[in-house]
Simulated assay, not measured.
Amino acid sequence: MSDAITRVADATGNWVDTVAPSWSRPYLRLARLDRPIGSWLLLLPCWWSAALSAGIAHHLDRLLLDLALFLIGAFAMRGAGCTWNDITDRDLDARVERTRSRPIPAGQVSVRQALAFLVAQALVGLAVLLQFNRFAVFTGIASLLIVAVYPFMKRITWWPQIVLGLAFSWGALMGFAVRFGRLDATAFVLYAGSIAWVIAYDTIYAHQDAEDDALIGVKSTARLFGERTHQALTVFYGLAVVLIGAALALAGAGVAAWIGLAVFAAHLAWQVSRLRIGDSALCLRLFKSNRDAGFMLFAGLLVDAVMRAV
């Protein structure tokens, strides 16, 4: 079977397809390193909380190290999570046009090989986690239960995006756990804001598969909201901005952080105005643009942390 045929349908022409050794490509695809957008979206709440907690502490000691460790950990654990998702969803993936070319349903990797690769990625994540304090270690481990159950949620609830939000927003807690060895109201409010953000952007993503999901009985907020998606996104993106703003207020954030939030909010509003739920390519582009939105907010939080530390 040629590699051109076995590429993942919505991830062609990337470095995995063109540069990586042939033997490694199925594993890199399992880890979604051919489509790293999810890793960035998992990482950004980590970076938000690291920068915001540094601002609260009024010093930047080991902030760069923490940002680097979060980067490695997010890519490793997102890869492990996606590998687990592909193992549990292999039969469903084989029935959906966009996902049937994934490594397991395409026959490139066996379930046993995928499990071994999952363990290897999880060990990298554990190695990163052990660089932090004990409270942060246990806080990070607590997220694994949510990660484990997420792939099954689309079978039993119309709101699997909430569970994804709980998992993908966990990093909003980790920065505070690492910095202070505890969690407070600021951390939980930031976490709630990130959850609302994830629900909205993953609804956009899920519209790519809405028709196939209906045929095979998979549930999602995209199917639940349908033609009311624009109104739902307005609610959830609006809630994200309000809750993140509340976290900034609790943290005593300065003007740079508020500018970052304002630009973040404007980007989310632009997404809603552009969205056409029947245009799968546009849905994917708008979903991916949330990385840019998240970086805008992070930039504001980082500048604010630096200003408060000097």
Rank of each mutant, 00 (worst) to 15 (best):
L239F: 10
A266W: 15
S169Q: 02
L173W: 04
R90S: 11
L67P: 03
R134Q: 13
I104A: 03
W258L: 08
I195K: 00
R78V: 01
N14D: 08
L130P: 06
A253C: 14
R32L: 03
L92E: 13
K219L: 15
A106V: 06
P160V: 10
R291I: 12
S169D: 02
L261S: 05
L145P: 07
Y205T: 02
S53F: 06
W197E: 04
G55E: 05
L92M: 15
F295A: 08
C82T: 00
A80F: 05
A136D: 03
S24E: 08
T186H: 09
D3N: 13
S289F: 01
W159G: 07
L268W: 07
H267Y: 10
M296D: 10
A240Q: 07
N133R: 05
E227I: 14
I72K: 04
S110C: 06
M77Y: 05
D212N: 14
R285A: 00
H230Y: 13
Y205P: 00
C283L: 07
L41F: 02
N290T: 04
S289A: 12
K219S: 13
T229M: 11
S49W: 01
A200L: 08
L130A: 03
I277E: 09
R308V: 09
M307W: 14
V124H: 09
L275D: 05
Q113K: 06
R155F: 11
A50Y: 05
M1D: 13
S2K: 09
A4I: 11
A269C: 14
F70G: 01
P151A: 06
A31L: 06
W258H: 13
L282K: 01
D93K: 08
G175E: 02
L28A: 01
A206V: 07
V310D: 15
A80M: 07
F168W: 01
